[in-house]
Every structure is written in C-alpha cells, then in structure tokens.
Design a protein around this nucleic acid. Sequence first.
DNA 1: CAGTATCCCTCATGATACTG
DNA 2: CAGTATCATGAGGGATACTG
Lengths: 134, 134
Amino acid sequence: MATRTAAQQRVDAKLRYDAYVAECPTRHLLDRISDKWTSLLINALAEQPRRFGELSRRVAGISQKMLTQTLRNLERDGLVSRTVTPAVPVRVEYALTPLGLDLLPVMQAIKAWAEANMEEVLAARADYDSANGS
Amino acid sequence: MATRTAAQQRVDAKLRYDAYVAECPTRHLLDRISDKWTSLLINALAEQPRRFGELSRRVAGISQKMLTQTLRNLERDGLVSRTVTPAVPVRVEYALTPLGLDLLPVMQAIKAWAEANMEEVLAARADYDSANGS
DNA sequence: CAGTATCCCTCATGATACTG
DNA sequence: CAGTATCATGAGGGATACTG
C-alpha cells in the first residue's frame, strides 16, 4: 500500500492529529518536547555526540535522575540513540537520530529566543510588578 | 549611551545569557515558554484575540485555574495583553503583544512538529518497547 | 462572564546511597 | 563511568464552590 508519498502522509497526519483536542496523543508529545531538559539536551547533543558524564556537565544543574530519565524518554521516542561500547569502564555515547535532527531547529529556536529576549521579558515583568501590587 | 544598535544588543544578550548555566534566569524563561499550555495558548491567540471563555473552549481540557495562571504569567512576561471592557457582564479580551508575536513562529513550529511527527514517534516507541521488556 | 479561593492529591524532581 | 534504587518534598494541577 505504498501509494502515499511522504508529503501526503504528513498532510494526513496534520489532519489526524490536533493538539487543541484534549484526548489527542499529541498533547503528551508536546509535553515531552516542551520540556526544559529536552530542549537543553537536544541542543547539547547537536553540538556533538556526548557521553553521560559530559552531558551532565554541559547541562549544568541537571540531576543524574533527570538526565537518565530524559535520555530514556528521548531514546524511546526515537529522538536520541544510545550506543554502548563494551570496555572497562563501559562507554556509552548519546547522539541525535535523524528524527532528533529534524526536531533540532525548533529546539535551537526556543533556546535562542529565550536567551535573546530575556531582557525584554525582565523589563516587562518589572513594569507589570510596579503597575500592580508589589 | 544609545550607541548600541538593536542588532548589537541582541548579540550582547546572547553572550550574556546562556541557558546551559544553571543559575541563568534564562532557565526560568525557557521553562515558561516550554510549557504545553503556553504553546497552545499562544497558538490560539494568534488565530485571533479571544475572551476567557473562548480560550477555555479552544484549548480543550485546560482547567480554569491553569488558564488563569498561564494567562497571568504570559501577561506579566509581556507576551499577552489583557483588555477589560467595562460592561455588564464585563468583557475581557486577550491578545498577543509584539513580543508574543515574535515568539509565535517558534510556538507554531513546536506544535506543528508534534502533530506532524506523532506517528513516527509512536512507531519508535513500539519498536523500543518490543525490543526491551514490555 | 471572568474570574478568585480552597482543598487535595498525584507526580515530577532532587538528594542520597549503592552497583556492575 | 554510567547508571539503578529509594526516600522525601513541594509544586503542579484538577475539582469544587463562591463572587463582582
């Protein structure tokens, strides 16, 4: 039944999935990729494939638990690959998959937007807080 | 000291703020704009300015509490404007600010990506789950 | 209509300790 | 090194009821 092109399939998907609908599985996916650790990790892995320890240093402040958990989720969702090299000690390397690479531009954009507009937001908050109570 | 152009200021901001650093305020901003309700609300407000009740219907499943809370945060951050028209009953309309409009493309992209790639992710999960235990 | 105010509870996340 | 396991906490978020 390979009569649908990739482009047609994408159109179909857009019709089938609508994140405005509460029961849509897209909600969960949106939740996952809208995670702060996800955006930081995808960005960090885009710089270069990295080992567990490297990642925890690059993404400062992430706990071992959240790093493991987020990486597992990303691996399960097909965004990140996990390669184990048997050795002593064992070497585990994480990298973006093609699907992860496809998501990358969005993750880069969101991180870049936050960094670029931090001061404007800070100013808006100051305005809001002085206009309203405290 | 208005010797810096807008472009230069953006470059400065990128140097000053780095979301990889744990203490960077960007982390909080990233968290906020990486919220599932935020992306849905920004998208909904881009379609047209909307009233409270319209929003709660458009973004199905959101509770009154989360809607209020998220709107307040977005207003405080300067992404959304809130206009009250005195009348009986009172009319309150929410709309995107220029800053919110600036963020819109990113919010559209993330929602669109989730909807477009849902099936690939679902397939990846099925693979992962059958490869590993259950 | 557009909220605010409470109660309540689950789950996300961090801290700590242990392991192949 | 690259995790897993366990415990503890508090914030996120839903349900319900009330108000200008």
